[in-house]
Amino acid sequence: MRIAICVKEVPDPTAVKRIDDGSHRLVRSGENTLNPYDRHAIEAAVQIKEGPAPDTEITIVTMAPESAGRSVDRALAQGGDRSVHIADEAAAGSDLLGTARILAAALKRELFDLILLGQQAADSECYVMAGLVAELLEVPCITQAASIELADGSVTVKRQVETGYDTVKAQLPCVVSVSDAINDPRYPPLPAIMGAKRKPHEVVTLAELGIDASTVGAAGAATSVGGLSKPAGRGDTIVLEDDGTAAEQLLAFLVEKKVVA
């Protein structure tokens, strides 16, 4: 079984995120980390390898600047066997369509049975990449998987929809994005973290993938951001650290606001 996992590097969730006024792009110069949602996709692949398909090879695929090597290592430490890192300055500024084109081109070079993604990127909260990538690969797609089962060349997924839970079955190869409730990702042990660097890393450019640079990146973007504005906020927020009296202070606040009689 060959599994590819698409992972994204995102700004550290603890950092204050900001969009640059000039380029209208997210400022990514601060601390970055592996998208937390993608850790669930890696764990799902590791569980397949530990369970029904021990001969599985897990490939980490990312499109990111070269500086994202640490996040790739983090993904490998969690259970990847090798990585494909698309790093090219012309990829900067890619929107969903451009990113999907790049990922699909990288995924097309090899025969993967299962392509896993996270439920969404923590920075953009877009949640639709799987649908774009599957269409470009011309393979079936199942999103927001709460469980995954593999049998006889097919994948069966339980997923939440507005009316309840669906069970959906698709032939492999298939693209699946996983819900953050599918598993509890384990933290990699120290030897795995140390060993990640020694796993095969492949860094590829757009040209090596046969991608016309004018169809991706800022040059090929299908969307444009013409300006930024500030939405109406909710108003004042009181936030306090609990020192043992927070519950009392909260109740006093609710009584004063007449929310509690």
Binding site: L97, E125, V128, G131, T143, A221, T223, P231
Partner: peptide, 25 residues
Amino acid sequence: ASIMTADAMAGLAARLGAGIVIDAV
């Protein structure tokens, strides 16, 4: 936005080479 429509619009955007905006308010 729903589970089905978001996936359908994503697939359509990819097929048409169209830009897609998520979470428009």
